[in-house]
């Protein structure tokens, strides 16, 4: 197990280096810099002022020097300073993190709550109309664009039903009721595709397990079908489902950008989009790098969990 972990961490380190290079290169290619943004017409009118500002932000140095400087900072958890607000990128990220983390956890939570029973029921009812209905529902869930679903939910609850939660985000610790009222619709939106994916995975995993020898043996022993399904089959069918939920949590990291924009939530996704539109390089670089790292760590955690549950993998 230790050797497996070592191999995975070494590969991840190499990939992270590539990710940092790609992020840095991509951000440097964005047309226009914060200097032009800040100076506006003055940038064109006065090349001297433009050069002075470029020097101030360190943009006049060779690219490889800028990259090495940035990387050295990243290793020390120093992602630089926002060119617009002058605040540390890490501080900005951490300030927005609670909103995004809560949203992601709530989304995965409700998708498990919905997906597991639906998938299990669909497998138990295989071939019936109820099974078909659940499968169609799952395909529908996978096809809903999050930004449209969010828009429809806002329309339904806020405009037609007059249920208007506060537009100002409130931390859960300060007012749990108000917080959950604000987060309910975004979490529902963000988790729908995941719920659909978990439903499909749970169904296929349950079908696989229900056909196994030990389940047939349990039935042959005269055990009640409900006992066989829940005590014998479901427990084993959960392993791949849990890993799918883990992988989906990673994809939810990407979905945050869209859902936070729809519901105007002050999370990490909103921070990134604003930084892209304002050409605030350090924030764009830092946030993308942190999110990509989180995505990789989640994938690694899922693989490790799977390796723990299935010893064939770590010896393979």
């Amino acid at each position: 197990m230790r050797a497996y972990l070592g191999r995975r961490l070494a590969a991840m380190g190499l990939t992270l280096l590539g990710v940092s290079l790609l992020v840095f290169g991509m951000v440097r290619l964005i047309p226009g810099t914060v200097v032009e943004q800040l100076l506006g017409q003055a940038a064109i009118a006065s090349p001297e002022v433009l050069a002075a500002f470029r020097r101030f932000f360190g943009l006049d140095r060779p690219l490889h020097v800028q990259y090495m400087d940035w990387l050295a900072g990243v290793v020390r958890a120093d992602f630089g300073v926002s060119w617009l607000s002058g605040r540390s990128v890490l501080a900005l990220f951490l300030e927005r993190l609670p909103v995004s983390a809560e949203l992601a956890v709530l989304a995965v939570g409700w998708s498990l709550l919905l997906g597991l029973p639906l998938g299990t029921a669909s497998a138990v009812w295989r071939g019936t109309r109820r099974d078909s209905a659940i499968r169609v529902l799952a395909t529908l869930g996978l096809s809903l664009p999050a930004f449209w679903q969010g828009t429809v939910l806002i329309l339904l609850f806020s405009v037609y039903l007059g249920w208007m939660p506060s537009l100002q985000w409130v931390p859960f610790t300060r007012n749990p009721g108000a917080n959950l009222a604000i987060m309910a619709l975004p979490a529902l939106t963000l988790g729908t595709a995941t719920a659909a994916m978990i439903t499909r995975m749970a169904r296929s995993s349950m079908l696989d397990v229900l056909g196994r020898e030990y389940v047939r043996t349990a039935r042959a022993k005269g055990l009640h079908e409900r006992h066989v399904t829940f005590r014998h089959a479901l427990r084993n069918a959960l392993i791949p489902v849990v890993t799918v939920a883990g992988v989906q949590l990673g994809y939810i990291v990407g979905g945050l950008v869209v859902v936070e924009d729809v519901f105007t939530l002050p999370g990490v996704g909103r921070l990134l989009l604003d930084a892209i539109f304002q050409r605030d390089y350090p924030v764009v670089q830092g946030v993308i790098l942190i999110l990509a790292t989180a995505f990789m760590l989640l994938n690694l955690a899922v693989d490790l969990l799977y390796a723990v549950l299935d010893p064939r993998l770590r010896h393979g």
Partner: peptide, 21 residues
């Protein structure tokens, strides 16, 4: 190894980054 770098990004994030560039 190169492809691993692209897989390290959530899809929509990679698309937004590329579009921004």
């Amino acid at each position: 190894r190169v492809m691993d770098v692209f897989f390290a990004f959530p899809p929509i994030l990679l698309a937004i980054g590329t579009a921004a560039v």
